[in-house]
Design a protein around this nucleic acid. Structure first.
Lengths: 236, 236
DNA sequence: CGTGCTGTTGACATACTTCAATACGGGTGG
DNA sequence: CCACCCGTATTGAAGTATGTCAACAGCACG
């Protein structure tokens, strides 16, 4: 759902300790007739309403899927991590626009290949199941959480191995801090969390004032106490 | 996503004209070692946190999936129709509680059967894709729509072949009315739409006052002009 | 050193929630 | 058959979180 340098882009030196989201320990869709493609940051892979031609697997970087209402309101429905798939619509048109947040590497598989391969279908079902669960969680966020809880949940998504069901808790005697890179503008975050830019900005400022986070650049945030932030997600 | 007597329960005499949501024109999961089960209305199939044992396919009736926050807030994340699958969690515990809304008939397939069958995995991927699209749509509703738009969207879900991408428009010279049965309490609707009971109730009363709908019993609603209601969903 | 974009902050507006009273409706028991 | 009861739904009044509008600040770019 969320993304972070660690794992998402292999930019920082830290290895993500969790298993890959999809097809754990297995080869990617490349083996099934897909071909690799690279996109720059903020590139549109396809638009809502475009005819469905192929399936995509995100290999590196991060991509968001969003839907627009005719009056311009936007909802970012998924923020994808490597291993996630996109481009399936269950109809002949894409239901969302897919846009990269960072530079991204993508496997593109023609639909006819997808139809053919049992192996691919199997791996697909697995990915979709995982993404489905993320969407369930996100529905709770959008339907039932306060602005602070939304932002806290969002930030927690970006911390590997923390906050989820399998949270490992503070590691050792560490100070339980964490550095992360958002890669999203306030507008994108707001559209993801179902809020306005102003509200997101205010909540972030508030978290700073309360000493929960620290930030010099707007999209570079240091979490002072991960556990403290986690307590604010509404999930505890 | 939504449900209605027509199609959902085969209770009224009208045949649903749309293709089944899943595995169109194909056999159900019964062929893959599943066994049929029946549940009464308001029965829990499994609880959030229960160990995952099997996969379910809804054959008849309707089922909702919901998540609870520790403080009791609830979000209904999906309202399933026949053809939809549930019980996949991508982990060893169910991420949602599954509860029937009406009497329901369900195919239950042990997980080991699911692992084995390519055919089943294929059909699964198809179902998940469809449900995923519904979740995307619902994220827009929860994140970006007003109370009136949410209720209007909800009601439109219950009208077959209308409001979606493939809306067929008013049929002939008909008065464009439609009768539907909610099968959900105000609380369930509110928890599905991310609102409170009071707001749902107020919006419904308002729609009555404006002559958009008519209702004698709380969960039996007549839409006076389907197209008029559709205009209120925010999607036009 | 402007220019333009993104983000922040403030003051105010409002849609929705909260709390509380009342109405309805279906079932039970006298 | 009617009275009573309990759960659900409706309606009202008041409160509040978040949205809206507008000014300003910070930073990158030319």
């Amino acid at each position: 759902m969320a993304y972070f340098d660690v794992g998402a882009g292999q930019i920082s030196g830290v290895r993500p300790s969790g298993a890959p989201v999809c097809a754990p320990g297995k080869t990617s869709f490349a083996d099934f007739g897909g071909k690799a493609a690279r996109y720059g940051a903020h590139a549109v892979v396809y638009y809502q309403g475009d005819p469905v031609k192929r399936l995509y697997e995100l290999v590196k970087g991060s991509v968001m899927l969003y839907k627009l209402l005719p009056d311009g309101r936007r909802q970012v429905v998924e923020v994808l991590r490597p291993g996630d798939v996109f481009g399936l619509a269950g109809s002949d048109e894409y239901d969302c626009t897919a846009e990269t947040l960072t530079e991204a590497e993508v496997q593109e598989i023609e639909l006819r290949h997808v139809e053919r391969s049992d192996e691919l279908q199997r791996s697909l079902a697995k990915c979709l199941t995982n993404q489905m669960r993320a969407l369930h969680e996100h529905a709770v966020l959008l339907g039932r959480k306060s602005a602070v809880e939304r932002v806290a949940s969002f930030l927690m998504y970006l911390v590997p191995d923390r906050g989820g069901a399998s949270c490992i808790g503070p590691v050792g005697d560490a100070d339980d801090g964490f550095d992360l890179h958002l890669h999203m503008t306030r507008q994108e975050i707001a559209d993801y969390l179902g809020l306005t830019i102003e509200t997101v900005s205010r909540v972030v400022s508030d978290l700073k004032r309360r000493g929960v986070i620290r930030a010099d650049k707007a999209d570079r945030i240091h979490l002072n106490r991960v556990c403290g932030l986690c307590q604010m997600t509404g999930m505890h």
